Amino acid sequence: TRVETATETAWISLVTALHLVLGLSAVLGLLLLRWQFPAHYRRLRHALW
């Protein structure tokens, strides 16, 4: 049971790290898009909202 718990903890930390990385890359990508294509971003936002 001790090994299982350790594996579970490792998986949880791995998944958390993955989610953090994905979230950060998504935010960075959005910022980059907004910085590179302001007109396109505004049009996209206008279409979405």
Score class of each variant (00 low, 15 high):
residue 13 S to P: 11
residue 13 S to N: 10
residue 44 L to Q: 01
residue 42 R to H: 07
residue 8 E to F: 05
residue 1 T to F: 11
residue 37 F to C: 09
residue 3 V to W: 00
residue 25 S to G: 08
residue 39 A to P: 04
residue 7 T to D: 13
residue 25 S to F: 10
residue 45 R to T: 08
residue 32 L to I: 05
residue 14 L to R: 09
residue 42 R to T: 09
residue 18 L to V: 14
residue 23 G to D: 00
residue 42 R to N: 11
residue 45 R to G: 04
residue 47 A to W: 08
residue 20 L to D: 00
residue 31 L to M: 08
residue 49 W to I: 02
residue 30 L to N: 00
residue 25 S to H: 04
residue 13 S to K: 10
residue 20 L to V: 14
residue 46 H to A: 05
residue 44 L to R: 02
residue 35 W to I: 12
residue 9 T to Q: 09
residue 10 A to H: 05
residue 1 T to V: 10
residue 5 T to Q: 00
residue 2 R to Q: 14
residue 35 W to M: 11
residue 40 H to V: 06
residue 6 A to I: 06
residue 47 A to M: 04
residue 49 W to P: 00
residue 37 F to S: 04
residue 34 R to Y: 04
residue 48 L to Q: 00
residue 39 A to K: 14
residue 3 V to D: 00
residue 48 L to F: 04
residue 49 W to C: 01
residue 41 Y to M: 15
residue 27 V to R: 02
residue 35 W to G: 05
residue 30 L to A: 12
residue 22 L to F: 13
residue 26 A to N: 02
residue 4 E to K: 06
residue 13 S to Q: 14
residue 43 R to E: 05
residue 15 V to E: 05
residue 12 I to N: 04
residue 12 I to F: 10
residue 22 L to H: 02
residue 11 W to H: 11
residue 21 V to G: 13
residue 18 L to A: 05
residue 8 E to V: 09
residue 45 R to Q: 04
residue 7 T to C: 02
residue 9 T to V: 11
residue 31 L to T: 12
residue 6 A to D: 10
residue 21 V to T: 12
residue 32 L to K: 02
residue 20 L to W: 13
residue 34 R to W: 04
residue 5 T to S: 01
residue 18 L to C: 13
residue 32 L to D: 01
residue 37 F to R: 05
residue 7 T to Y: 09
residue 31 L to P: 03
residue 4 E to I: 09
residue 27 V to I: 14
residue 33 L to H: 02
residue 4 E to G: 06
residue 3 V to P: 00
residue 33 L to C: 15
residue 4 E to C: 05
residue 15 V to N: 08
residue 46 H to D: 09
residue 42 R to K: 12
residue 25 S to Y: 04
residue 30 L to G: 08
residue 26 A to K: 02
residue 11 W to L: 09
residue 31 L to H: 02
residue 29 G to W: 04
residue 26 A to E: 00
residue 5 T to N: 00
residue 40 H to A: 10
residue 13 S to G: 06
residue 23 G to C: 15
residue 19 H to L: 15
residue 18 L to F: 12
residue 9 T to L: 12
residue 38 P to V: 08
residue 27 V to L: 13
residue 23 G to L: 15
residue 49 W to K: 05
residue 28 L to E: 00
residue 28 L to D: 02
residue 46 H to S: 05
residue 14 L to I: 10
residue 8 E to A: 11
residue 11 W to D: 07
residue 2 R to A: 09
residue 15 V to D: 04
residue 33 L to S: 01
residue 1 T to S: 12
residue 10 A to G: 11
residue 28 L to N: 02
residue 14 L to H: 06
residue 36 Q to N: 08
residue 3 V to F: 04
residue 24 L to A: 14
residue 38 P to M: 08
residue 3 V to R: 00
residue 3 V to K: 00
residue 22 L to M: 12
residue 29 G to I: 13
residue 14 L to N: 09
residue 8 E to K: 12
residue 40 H to P: 08
residue 23 G to P: 10
residue 42 R to Y: 13
residue 35 W to L: 12
residue 43 R to I: 05
residue 20 L to F: 14
residue 8 E to C: 08
residue 17 A to H: 02
residue 5 T to E: 00
residue 12 I to T: 15
residue 40 H to S: 13
residue 40 H to N: 07
residue 44 L to C: 07
residue 17 A to L: 14
residue 24 L to T: 03
residue 49 W to E: 01
residue 11 W to I: 10
residue 30 L to R: 01
residue 3 V to Q: 01
residue 46 H to N: 15
residue 25 S to W: 05
residue 24 L to R: 01
residue 38 P to K: 15
residue 46 H to E: 07
residue 7 T to K: 14
residue 34 R to F: 08
residue 6 A to K: 09
residue 1 T to N: 04
residue 27 V to H: 01
residue 2 R to E: 12
residue 24 L to I: 10
residue 20 L to R: 00
residue 38 P to L: 09
residue 24 L to W: 04
residue 9 T to R: 13
residue 12 I to S: 12
residue 23 G to K: 02
residue 8 E to I: 06
residue 22 L to C: 10
residue 22 L to T: 05
residue 24 L to F: 14
residue 34 R to K: 12
residue 7 T to S: 10
residue 47 A to K: 09
residue 41 Y to C: 15
residue 1 T to Y: 10
residue 41 Y to A: 13
residue 17 A to P: 03
residue 26 A to I: 09
residue 7 T to M: 07
residue 17 A to Y: 04
residue 18 L to Q: 03
residue 3 V to L: 08
residue 4 E to T: 07
residue 18 L to M: 13
residue 36 Q to C: 09
residue 8 E to H: 08
residue 44 L to T: 04
residue 16 T to R: 04
residue 1 T to C: 14
residue 28 L to P: 03
residue 43 R to Q: 06
residue 37 F to D: 03
residue 3 V to Y: 04
residue 49 W to A: 02
residue 38 P to N: 07
residue 39 A to M: 14
residue 31 L to W: 14
residue 34 R to A: 07
residue 39 A to Q: 15
residue 36 Q to S: 09
residue 48 L to W: 07
residue 16 T to M: 10
residue 38 P to R: 14
residue 40 H to C: 12
residue 26 A to F: 14
residue 17 A to N: 03
residue 43 R to A: 12
residue 15 V to P: 05
residue 31 L to Q: 03
residue 20 L to C: 15
residue 27 V to C: 12
residue 34 R to S: 06
residue 39 A to Y: 09
residue 33 L to V: 07
residue 18 L to D: 03
residue 19 H to C: 15
residue 37 F to Q: 01
residue 9 T to W: 15
residue 39 A to F: 09
residue 31 L to G: 03
residue 7 T to Q: 12
residue 7 T to N: 06
residue 40 H to T: 12
residue 28 L to V: 10
residue 47 A to N: 05
residue 28 L to Q: 00
residue 27 V to Q: 02
residue 22 L to V: 11
residue 4 E to F: 10
residue 19 H to I: 15
residue 25 S to A: 15
residue 18 L to E: 02
residue 14 L to P: 06
residue 30 L to I: 12
residue 47 A to T: 06
residue 34 R to G: 09
residue 13 S to C: 09
residue 49 W to N: 04
residue 24 L to P: 03
residue 2 R to T: 14
residue 32 L to G: 03
residue 28 L to I: 14
residue 25 S to E: 00
residue 42 R to I: 08
residue 47 A to Y: 06
residue 35 W to V: 11
residue 43 R to M: 07
residue 1 T to D: 04
residue 6 A to M: 10
residue 42 R to A: 10
residue 43 R to V: 07
residue 41 Y to N: 01
residue 42 R to Q: 06
residue 6 A to E: 09
residue 20 L to E: 00
residue 24 L to S: 06
residue 24 L to Q: 03
residue 3 V to I: 12
residue 16 T to G: 13
residue 45 R to W: 06
residue 5 T to A: 01
residue 14 L to D: 07
residue 36 Q to V: 13
residue 31 L to N: 02
residue 14 L to C: 09
residue 39 A to T: 11
residue 3 V to M: 04
residue 14 L to Y: 12
residue 22 L to E: 01
residue 13 S to L: 06
residue 37 F to M: 09
residue 2 R to V: 07
residue 43 R to D: 07
residue 30 L to D: 01
residue 7 T to E: 09
residue 19 H to V: 12
residue 32 L to V: 11
residue 34 R to P: 03
residue 49 W to L: 02
residue 18 L to Y: 05
residue 43 R to N: 07
residue 37 F to A: 10
residue 4 E to W: 07
residue 16 T to L: 11
residue 25 S to L: 12
residue 41 Y to K: 03
residue 5 T to Y: 03
residue 16 T to W: 13
residue 4 E to Y: 07
residue 43 R to H: 05
residue 22 L to K: 02
residue 22 L to A: 14
residue 44 L to Y: 05
residue 41 Y to T: 09
residue 31 L to C: 14
residue 12 I to M: 08
residue 25 S to V: 10
residue 15 V to L: 11
residue 13 S to R: 14
residue 32 L to Q: 01
residue 41 Y to Q: 03
residue 34 R to H: 03
residue 9 T to C: 05
residue 45 R to K: 13
residue 38 P to S: 11
residue 28 L to F: 11
residue 33 L to D: 01
